[in-house]
């Protein structure tokens, strides 16, 4: 199954938007105005579509900022520390995220697809 395509289908249905408007680089919250209840529904839908375990905090990067604070307090390498907690993201993507934090919520469609692929590989 094409993970990205299926993820876009699910997002289009839940958020009631055209699938053509959704790209890998589209932000869930900034661009598509996804709300917390949409994310809960999305998590269940991804579980259904891919038959994978979904950890809501991981997939939606919920504790990204607290983890970043922890890394700073421990004077740890920020990217490495965050990758330990979000192992489905690449080093490049995590670097992008850190550069992008000032703009608001950083979660993109490609991050969801990355999580699904990672879960499928590790299950």
């Amino acid at each position: 199954m094409d993970i990205l395509k299926k993820t876009k289908e699910i997002l289009a249905e839940i958020l009631d938007i055209d699938e053509e408007e959704i790209a890998p680089e589209t932000y869930l919250i900034r661009d598509m105005n996804a709300e917390s209840i949409d994310l809960l529904e999305l998590a269940v839908a991804l579980n259904s579509a891919f038959n994978i375990k979904i950890n809501d905090d991981e997939i939606f990067l919920r504790n990204l900022r607290p983890y970043l604070t922890e890394a700073k307090e421990k004077q740890a390498d920020e990217v490495a520390y965050l990758l330990e907690n979000f192992p489905f993201l690449t080093k490049d993507r995590m670097t992008q995220i850190l550069d992008d934090l000032q703009g608001g919520p950083v979660l993109k469609v490609k991050d969801l697809a990355g999580y699904v692929a990672w879960r499928e590989e590790t299950s």
Binding site: L40, E41, A43, V44, A45, L46, N47, S48, I54, N55, D56, D57
Partner: peptide, 10 residues
Amino acid sequence: LINRSGLAFS
């Protein structure tokens, strides 16, 4: 129970 995540249940 047909689907679930850590926080949501269908």
